[in-house]
Design a protein around this nucleic acid. Sequence first.
DNA 1: CTGTATCCTGAACGATACTG
DNA 2: CAGTATCGTTCAGGATACAG
Lengths: 94, 94
Amino acid sequence: MEITLAALQGRWTTLVVRELLRGDRSYSELRAALPALSDKVLSDRLAQLGEAGVVHRDRRPGWPPRVRYTLTARGRRLGPVLQALWDWGADAPD
Amino acid sequence: MEITLAALQGRWTTLVVRELLRGDRSYSELRAALPALSDKVLSDRLAQLGEAGVVHRDRRPGWPPRVRYTLTARGRRLGPVLQALWDWGADAPD
DNA sequence: CTGTATCCTGAACGATACTG
DNA sequence: CAGTATCGTTCAGGATACAG
């Protein structure tokens, strides 16, 4: 569980993963989908998720630079976990 | 999901809930089970979980003071959620 | 026994500017 | 387009002492 919590640590991490669960995204798409995140935090989260083996960074050659972020198989297995989190919050609101 | 994350926020929160999932506990039992937590943090977490409607504080009259912490129905529903977190971490270790 | 108050430190966050 | 660098702020966490 410590592993999971470490991987999901950070106020915005789950929202980034949630966005990627819907499909792969470019950096600017993520930024547009999560306007509350500063570049720095988004960059930090993506790096963290990359090290946790949750997100894969796919850099395409050429100009302008194109990068796609996708979930790894490990990352996609977070789907049910986040769903459980969502359900609990929705089940018993204040 | 923001609700759940707010309720579980804090590095130690899930461990406190996990302990209470096994049965009700006194303050000193929690402290003994989670030696890494300072009094302040344990106290903070219990207050947070109380406000989130996860934990119930049962103060018995008399001396010395005896307090039992138990999970509410809402709190017990966190069991599967924490299990999902646990499973993910155990499934794909680094 | 069951906590709260105080103070301190380090990490996360947020904005802005700048680079490949 | 896709980030990193820097800097200031804010907040959770840890130690210690003290209170009901």
